[in-house]
Simulated assay, not measured.
Amino acid sequence: MRGYWNWLFKGDRPGLYKFFDRWFVFHVLVGASLAMLLPLSLQATASSILLPLASVTVGLSFAWSGSAQVLLQSAEIEQLSSFRVGGIEEYVYTFQTAVLCVLITLVSWCVAGLGVFDLVWPKSSIPCVYGMVCFLLFFMSSVTVRECWHVVVGAQQLLLLRYKVRMDAEKKTNS
């Protein structure tokens, strides 16, 4: 069994590749648009965005991750995961990556809220670096919203798959 960091960065198909799909362009557009259009400093933006972002992302991700963890421990999902290329690791590490994404985004916005980015790379003196930091923060926020949604969808899919495996097993024993 490989560890999380090994799964995320190494191997035939690292877990990080999950982020490079058709939605990647959307996240880039969201990050670029908000970075260019937002007239506020990062510190001011962080103070208005941080509490709602933290509440929603942490609440959704951690609540549904708990449900997913219970589902992943069921015999049905363990059986089902044996047919998946990445096995149970693929399920577990995907949920862990969503939580990591939430934590990185929240810490980044906290740093912005403390005014660190505004002090180190002032918008007036280094606009291109400041713009890149803005882009990265909004890009990560967009990815984080998507990952939170994936945690919910993933947990629900596991629930439905568990039910299907259980029903199929009952049909086989009844026939």
Rank of each mutant, 00 (worst) to 15 (best):
A46G: 09
K123I: 08
Q157D: 15
F24C: 04
R146S: 15
A35C: 00
A44T: 12
L40H: 11
S142R: 00
L159S: 12
L100H: 13
L114A: 15
F95L: 09
H27N: 07
F117M: 03
V151L: 09
N174A: 15
V85K: 09
Y130D: 12
G131E: 00
A155G: 13
V120A: 02
V85I: 10
S141H: 06
S61Y: 00
W5L: 13
R84P: 00
W109Q: 03
A32E: 03
P14N: 12
E90Y: 06
C110E: 07
L38I: 03
S65G: 11
V107L: 02
A35S: 08
I88Y: 11
P52E: 05
D21E: 10
K10N: 15
V151I: 06
C101P: 00
F139H: 04
M36Y: 01
W64S: 12
S108M: 01
L50E: 11
V152D: 08
V30S: 08
V28K: 06
S33W: 03
E76Q: 10
V99H: 05
A46R: 00
Q73T: 13
R2H: 12
K10H: 13
C110A: 15
L161D: 08
T97Y: 04
V151W: 10
S61L: 03
F9V: 08
I88T: 15
K171N: 15
G59K: 05
L40S: 14
Q43C: 04
G154M: 02
G15P: 02
L34M: 06
W7T: 14
K18Q: 13
P122N: 12
E170S: 09
S67I: 09
L53M: 10
T173L: 09
K123D: 01
I88D: 11
W149T: 13
V111F: 05
E147I: 03
Q69N: 06
I126M: 06
G113T: 06
I126V: 05
R146T: 15
E170P: 04
F138Y: 01
F83W: 06
N174P: 03
V70Q: 13
S55G: 10
V25N: 01
R166Y: 06
E90R: 09
L51W: 12
L51R: 12
S55K: 04
F62P: 01
S74W: 02
R166N: 11
E76I: 08
Q79S: 14
V28M: 05
S61F: 03
D118N: 01
I49W: 13
P14K: 12
Y91C: 09
L161K: 00
K123W: 03
H150L: 07
W5S: 14
V111I: 07
V165D: 06
F9Y: 10
D12S: 15
R84H: 12
C128A: 07
L37D: 05
S61R: 05
L37I: 05
Q79Y: 13
R84A: 14
V152T: 01
L40V: 15
D118A: 04
K171L: 14
R84Y: 07
N6C: 10
C128N: 03
F138G: 07
V165K: 06
C148F: 06
V28Q: 07
N174R: 15
D168C: 09
K171I: 13
G11T: 11
S82R: 04
S124D: 09
S61P: 01
V143N: 04
L60P: 03
Y163P: 02
L50Y: 06
